[in-house]
Computed example of a mutant assay.
Amino acid sequence: MTRPPGGVPPRPPGKPPARHAPFQVERQSFRRRRLIDAACALPLLGWVLWWLPLLWRGADAPMPASLVLVYIFGIWLGLALAAARLVRLLKGANSAAAPPSGGEGP
């Protein structure tokens, strides 16, 4: 058989086209990447939640500053707890993905 000008050899008649294997990622590495994505999105979520009190101006009565401060520090505490949880989950995902060491230790 001769090759066409494009350089791709023709497929023999009656043979189905070659199928490529689907791209699959191991479950652990997929989970680890999603955790990293969540860790990267956490500061953006915090920024949006911290600026949310600026939208409260439309109320008839002004919002007391004490409630706004409780809200801001509550968001800060929630972000710190979420970051700590993500760090623990990432450490667990890293230790599960790491190959076992050859030696048993000293």
Rank of each mutant, 00 (worst) to 15 (best):
H20Q: 13
H20P: 05
P22I: 09
F23V: 15
Q24M: 13
Q24C: 02
Q24D: 05
V25I: 14
V25D: 10
V25L: 09
R31K: 09
R31Y: 13
R31N: 07
R32E: 06
R32H: 08
R32M: 07
R34E: 06
R34Y: 08
L35K: 08
L35R: 06
I36L: 13
D37L: 12
D37S: 12
A38K: 02
A38D: 02
C40S: 11
C40F: 08
C40G: 10
A41C: 14
P43G: 12
P43C: 11
L44M: 11
G46A: 13
W47I: 10
V48W: 09
L49K: 01
L49S: 03
W51Q: 12
L52T: 05
L54S: 15
L55G: 13
L55C: 14
L55R: 05
W56P: 01
R57I: 13
A59L: 14
A59K: 09
A59H: 06
A59Y: 07
D60N: 09
D60W: 11
D60Q: 09
M63G: 01
M63R: 10
M63C: 11
P64I: 04
P64Y: 03
S66C: 04
L67G: 10
L67H: 14
V68Y: 01
V68M: 09
V68C: 09
L69N: 14
L69K: 06
L69C: 11
L69Q: 14
Y71H: 06
I72T: 03
I75E: 01
I75L: 07
W76I: 02
L77G: 11
G78V: 07
L79R: 01
A80S: 05
L81S: 03
L81D: 01
L81A: 15
A82R: 02
A83T: 01
